[in-house]
Computed example of a mutant assay.
Amino acid sequence: MARPKPPIFEKTRIVAENRRARFEYSIEDTYEAGIALTGTEVKSLRGGEGSIAESYAEVKEGAVWLVNSNIPEFSHGNRFNHEPKRARKLLLREREINKLHGAVARDGMTLVPLTVYFNSKGRAKVELALAKGRKDHDKREAIKERDWKREAARIMRDRG
């Protein structure tokens, strides 16, 4: 029997994307996690601001935290504004947290955020990947494979 495909997350509006992560890491598994945000952080994200290019996630004290992500201060936030680079708690089920903790502790995997987006209900979510770092020769191999696929598609398009 064929293995069922994992569900695709319904991303209605992508706010931030870590495009470099798919090149730097080989992605093993992906999870959808909610983010615990303050009001001004949500307003700033809805304005299209935010970056996860240098961020990562870590399992600490039975919770998963998004570290080093940048959500700039909201322009009309006055004294209630948030700190731009604070650690943000990711909302996952306990079974998922335990699975991630085991993979990070035993297998030397890394938790990398791929995208921050709003789903169809308007909730801010993070697509979190369980990944393993690539070596330089693996990166070269990925570039060769990508170039070959592009060339093959070009040949097929020209002939047919």
Results as ranks from 00 to 15, higher is better:
55 S>A: 11
53 A>G: 08
84 P>A: 15
91 L>S: 09
50 G>F: 01
76 H>D: 15
67 V>R: 06
56 Y>I: 06
63 A>D: 05
68 N>K: 06
52 I>Q: 00
69 S>C: 10
52 I>R: 01
89 K>T: 03
61 E>C: 04
54 E>W: 03
54 E>H: 13
57 A>P: 03
70 N>T: 10
61 E>T: 08
81 N>Y: 12
59 V>F: 10
88 R>C: 06
48 G>K: 04
75 S>V: 15
64 V>N: 00
51 S>R: 06
64 V>P: 03
51 S>G: 09
69 S>D: 07
84 P>C: 09
73 E>Y: 08
66 L>T: 01
91 L>H: 04
60 K>M: 01
52 I>S: 04
67 V>P: 04
72 P>I: 13
49 E>D: 10
70 N>C: 14
73 E>Q: 15
89 K>S: 00
53 A>C: 08
73 E>C: 13
72 P>C: 11
71 I>F: 10
65 W>L: 04
85 K>F: 12
52 I>C: 09
52 I>L: 02
69 S>T: 06
77 G>H: 09
55 S>R: 00
53 A>T: 04
57 A>M: 05
71 I>G: 07
89 K>M: 07
87 A>F: 12
83 E>G: 12
64 V>G: 05
76 H>C: 13
58 E>Y: 04
71 I>Y: 05
79 R>G: 12
72 P>M: 10
60 K>Y: 04
65 W>M: 08
66 L>I: 06
71 I>V: 12
48 G>V: 08
49 E>T: 13
91 L>M: 11
69 S>I: 00
69 S>P: 03
82 H>W: 12
67 V>M: 03
51 S>W: 03
64 V>I: 05
80 F>L: 15
85 K>G: 13
81 N>C: 14
49 E>G: 11
69 S>N: 08
80 F>P: 09
57 A>C: 06
53 A>V: 06
78 N>Q: 11
63 A>K: 07
69 S>F: 03
53 A>E: 00
91 L>N: 07
91 L>D: 05
49 E>Y: 13
54 E>D: 11
86 R>F: 07
90 L>E: 01
65 W>S: 00
60 K>E: 02
61 E>D: 12
76 H>K: 14
72 P>S: 09
78 N>M: 13
88 R>S: 07
73 E>K: 14
78 N>I: 15
56 Y>D: 01
82 H>E: 11
77 G>T: 12
55 S>K: 01
59 V>A: 08
53 A>H: 03
79 R>S: 15
68 N>G: 01
74 F>H: 14
62 G>D: 02
52 I>K: 01
64 V>A: 05
62 G>P: 06
52 I>M: 01
73 E>D: 07
78 N>D: 14
78 N>W: 14
71 I>S: 08
89 K>W: 02
78 N>H: 14
87 A>L: 01
66 L>W: 08
85 K>A: 07
82 H>D: 12
63 A>N: 09
84 P>Q: 11
57 A>R: 01
60 K>N: 08
56 Y>P: 00
74 F>D: 13
78 N>A: 14
85 K>L: 09
66 L>M: 09
67 V>W: 05
67 V>T: 08
91 L>R: 07
68 N>A: 11
78 N>E: 14
51 S>V: 07
76 H>S: 14
70 N>V: 11
48 G>C: 06
90 L>V: 05
52 I>N: 02
71 I>E: 01
86 R>V: 10
89 K>C: 03
67 V>Q: 02
51 S>M: 07
78 N>T: 15
